[in-house]
Simulated scan of single mutants.
Amino acid sequence: MESADIPLTSSEIGNLWMTYQEKTMLLRVLEYLLEHADNEEVQQILKSTYTSSEQTVETIKRIFQDEGAVIPLGFTVNDVNKGVPKLFDYLYEPMFLHMMSKIEASLFALYSTMSYRKDIRQLFKQLTASSQEMYDQCTQFLLEKGVLVRPPFMSMPKEVTFIQNDSYLSGLNIFKEKRALNAIEISLLHHAIETNLTGMQLMIGFAQVANDTKVQEYFVKGMKLSKEIETTLGEFLREDYIEPPATHAGKATSSTVAPFSDKLMMYLTNLLGSFGIGSNALGGAFSLRSDLPLSMARLAQKILPFVKEGGELMIKHGWLEEPPQVEDRRQLTKS
């Protein structure tokens, strides 16, 4: 039986739908960024990403059409305002794609493990590889430009050792000295802070240009929450005399003219918030020092209501497109 003869499963429909939303949003952002990118190498990365994203959108359209499904609306030309001033300065374009490549690589790798039809598995396998390639290109470029800080170096381990007692887990007991962070914990903290710094500049820019007052207030909340996350997680590194990542590039300009619709900016913020919840859960799960999971859980408790508030705001304005819904058979049991 050929793949096309096998109906899509609910997980495949849902993941294709979410990919369509994310990719159409990314196309609109890329259209704006391409207007302002003044570095030839950055332009090539943006164009390459645009072409691959456009192909993905067309592929998903074709799959839905073949299945007799309605094409999602996603984000259209009405969600981007061309010809407006630059909202972010020096090299924000590759920094934004660097952040998005982390999100996409995580999502598409997950989606590939939730797919069963051969053509859908192959699609998400390709998308995972494409997002990893985007990450490689942006990382190499930003490192060469000196605007991306590597995680701290450390001495190579010389022998295998095992944890001898539960003091290794100590972090909350004020009567026990906390051990130094291990390599896994440092890597997770660095990753979370690095991604959050790019997101914080995004919130600052969005807060400056949002048209709706409530939406503007929401972005200000996001800006403050980003700062709290960076400060809280950065303190763990500073306690071990490790400087958290920082960069002089990619700051928000003073422009107050919106390059995107409030709908698009809200969706992107919601996507970053959801990714932040997942990152904190991952960091907490792999941290063996007891104070780290607790701190990350507390941050997640602040991110979750922020994301929920964003969803409610989008619903109020009619911006939240409804995902495909199964037939409600519960009513049959009431008759």
Rank of each mutant, 00 (worst) to 15 (best):
S167R: 12
L169S: 06
S170K: 06
S170H: 11
S170E: 09
S170W: 04
G171W: 07
G171K: 05
G171S: 05
G171R: 07
L172S: 11
L172N: 02
L172Y: 07
L172V: 08
F175C: 04
F175M: 13
F175H: 09
F175T: 13
K176T: 14
K176M: 15
K176C: 06
K176F: 13
E177S: 08
K178Y: 00
K178F: 03
K178A: 12
K178H: 06
K178I: 15
K178C: 01
A180C: 05
A180P: 11
A180H: 11
L181E: 09
L181R: 12
L181Y: 15
L181S: 10
N182S: 09
N182V: 01
N182F: 05
N182H: 14
A183C: 07
A183I: 13
A183K: 13
I184A: 13
I184E: 14
E185H: 07
I186K: 07
S187W: 13
L188A: 10
L188R: 06
L189C: 11
L189V: 05
L189F: 06
H190E: 06
H190P: 03
H191T: 10
H191A: 10
H191I: 10
A192L: 11
I193K: 01
I193C: 11
I193T: 13
E194Y: 02
T195F: 04
T195W: 00
T195P: 00
T195Q: 04
T195N: 06
T195I: 11
L197K: 09
L197F: 07
T198F: 04
T198D: 03
G199W: 06
G199F: 00
M200Q: 13
M200E: 10
M200D: 02
Q201S: 08
Q201C: 00
Q201W: 05
L202S: 12
M203I: 00
M203F: 10
M203Q: 10
G205W: 13
G205L: 09
G205T: 09
F206W: 00
F206V: 04
F206K: 02
F206A: 11
A207D: 02
A207I: 01
A207F: 03
Q208A: 12
Q208V: 07
V209C: 14
V209E: 04
V209K: 14
A210Q: 00
A210W: 07
N211K: 08
N211F: 00
N211P: 02
N211C: 00
D212G: 03
T213P: 00
T213N: 03
K214Q: 12
V215A: 01
V215Y: 01
Q216S: 08
Q216I: 00
Q216D: 08
Q216T: 14
Q216N: 07
Y218H: 12
Y218F: 03
F219S: 03
F219V: 01
F219A: 03
V220W: 07
V220T: 10
V220C: 03
V220E: 14
K221Y: 00
K221T: 12
G222I: 07
M223H: 14
M223N: 12
L225D: 06
S226L: 01
S226F: 05
S226C: 14
K227M: 06
E228G: 04
E228Y: 05
E230H: 10
E230F: 09
T231H: 13
T231E: 15
T232I: 09
T232N: 15
G234C: 09
G234A: 08
G234S: 05
E235Y: 11
E235M: 11
F236C: 11
F236N: 07
F236Y: 12
F236P: 12
F236D: 09
L237H: 10
R238I: 15
E239N: 14
E239A: 14
D240C: 02
